[in-house]
Each structure stands twice: as structure tokens, then as C-alpha cells.
Computed example of a mutant assay.
Amino acid sequence: MKKILLIAAASTVLSMGSVQANPYDALGCAGCHGAGGKSSIPTYPSLNGQQAAYTVKQLKDFQSGARKDATMGAMAGLAAGQEQAIADYLAAQ
């Protein structure tokens, strides 16, 4: 299931050509973390209302491997360069 979500998210990004104003939705983050970052799946944390600096750090830690999770490592890689926009969006939710 995780591989399917990852492939779907990557396909979305590639078909869009570039990430638009809301990279959270464009990258498919809502598939696990819910619309607006409010997860309805207990396995995946809600991200809405998080402080932006915290979210940026977590994404960068997944990218660098300092924080380990196969799915999030791949998804955070897709978010490279969009960390602050994602964090700002989630902080405002």
C-alpha cells in the first residue's frame, strides 16, 4: 500500500511539471496525513497547527536520513525545496 501511495504521489508531481502554491496537496501528503494535515488514520500523525520551524526540521531530517522511515524518506525527498511552503501551509491549518 505504501509503495502505491508513493508512486501515485510521484506521478502527480511529474504530471504537474512543478509544484503549485500548495505543495502539501500537490505532493499527495493528504493521502496519509489528511486534508489540511488533519489525519483520520491513527497510524499517521496530524500535522495541522505544527510550528513551521519544527515541520521544516522534520522534513530535512527525513531527507538527510537523520530520521528514518522508508515512506517519509522518499516523500520528503519529493518535497526538497518546498519544505518552508509545506510548513507554512500546515502551521496555518
Rank of each mutant, 00 (worst) to 15 (best):
A85L: 10
A21H: 05
A66F: 03
G37M: 02
L47F: 08
A52I: 07
A30H: 05
A74Q: 14
A85C: 12
L6M: 06
Q84V: 07
Q93R: 15
C29P: 01
Q82N: 12
I4N: 06
F62C: 12
A21L: 07
I7W: 08
Y24P: 02
L14F: 09
Q84C: 06
L78S: 04
K38W: 01
Q20M: 10
E83V: 02
S15V: 07
A70M: 12
H33I: 06
I4H: 04
S15T: 14
Q20D: 14
P42R: 13
A70N: 08
S64A: 10
R67S: 10
G49H: 03
V19I: 15
G65W: 15
S39Q: 09
T12M: 14
A53S: 13
Y44L: 01
Y54M: 09
Q20G: 14
M16I: 03
L47M: 09
L6G: 01
I86L: 01
Q93H: 14
A26T: 03
K60D: 00
G49I: 08
Q20C: 00
M1R: 09
Q51V: 13
G49D: 00
A35C: 01
I86G: 03
Q58T: 13
V19A: 15
H33N: 04
K57M: 08
L47P: 02
V19Y: 00
M16K: 11
L6N: 04
P45M: 05
T43W: 05
A26C: 04
L59F: 02
S11N: 12
L27M: 13
N22H: 07
A79G: 11
A70K: 09
A87D: 02
Q50L: 14
H33C: 03
G73I: 15
A30C: 04
M16S: 15
A92D: 15
M75R: 03
R67N: 11
L78F: 15
A26S: 11
A53H: 02
S40G: 04
